[in-house]
C-alpha cells in the first residue's frame, strides 16, 4: 500500500469515528432524542378514528398542561387541515413533551428552527421532548403533504 493510500484510509476512518462520536455525544450529553412512538390507538369494529380519539386520554384534553414544576405536556391533534390547538403558549426554559397524533391522513408536525419534527400517522402516538430556551414566536407547520389545502395547515408556538 502506498503512503498516500494509507493516509487517505486513516482519514476516512477518522471521519467515520468523529461522526459516530458526534452522534453519541448529541444523544447522551445533549439529550437529543428522536421522536418515538409511544403507543397506538386502536378502534373497534365500525368505529371512526377521529371519534375514538376524542375519548382516548390524553387526546380528550388537547392543549398545554403543567405536569410538574417547569415540566409541561402539549397534546396536539392534527386534522385536515389544522392543528388542535393551533397556538401553543409556553414559558421560556420549560421542558415540554409534545404528544401528537393524526385524526385522518398522515401529517407532519414541524416547529421551525428547532428539531421538533415528527411525522404524525393516524393510529400512532408520537412523542418528543424539547426545551425552548429563547423567547419568541415559532412557526408550527405541517410539512407532510396532506391534500389540497396543505399549505394552510400552520400554527404557532409562543414562548414568553
Amino acid at each position: 500500500m502506498e503512503r498516500y493510500e494509507k493516509a487517505f484510509l486513516s482519514a476516512c476512518a477518522a471521519v467515520l469515528v468523529i461522526f459516530l462520536c458526534a452522534l453519541g455525544y448529541s444523544s447522551v450529553a445533549m439529550n437529543v432524542h428522536l421522536p418515538s412512538h409511544s403507543g397506538m390507538i386502536y378502534c373497534n369494529a365500525g368505529q371512526k378514528l377521529r371519534k375514538v380519539l376524542l375519548k382516548t386520554p390524553p387526546f380528550d384534553h388537547t392543549g398545554v398542561k403543567e405536569i410538574a414544576p417547569g415540566k409541561y405536556q402539549a397534546v396536539v391533534i392534527a386534522k385536515t387541515w389544522a392543528f388542535t390547538p393551533n397556538e401553543i403558549d409556553l414559558p421560556v426554559g420549560a421542558e415540554v413533551k409534545f404528544i401528537a397524533t393524526s385524526a385522518d391522513v398522515t401529517h407532519g408536525f414541524f416547529i421551525v428552527g428547532t428539531r421538533v419534527n415528527m411525522m404524525l400517522l393516524p393510529g400512532q402516538i408520537s412523542e418528543l421532548d424539547y426545551r425552548f430556551t429563547k423567547p419568541g414566536e415559532y412557526l408550527m407547520i405541517c410539512h407532510e403533504y396532506c391534500g389540497e389545502l396543505h399549505h394552510t395547515m400552520a400554527g404557532k408556538v409562543v414562548v414568553k
Partner: peptide, 24 residues
C-alpha cells in the same frame, strides 16, 4: 427517509450507520 416517523432508537441508529457507510 422515515426518521421522523418514530421507528425507535435501534432502527434509527441502524439506518443512520448504513446511510453513512454508503458514502464510502
Amino acid at each position: 427517509h422515515m426518521f421522523a416517523t418514530g421507528m425507535g432508537p435501534v432502527a434509527d441508529s441502524a439506518f443512520a450507520i448504513t446511510s453513512m457507510l454508503i458514502a464510502i
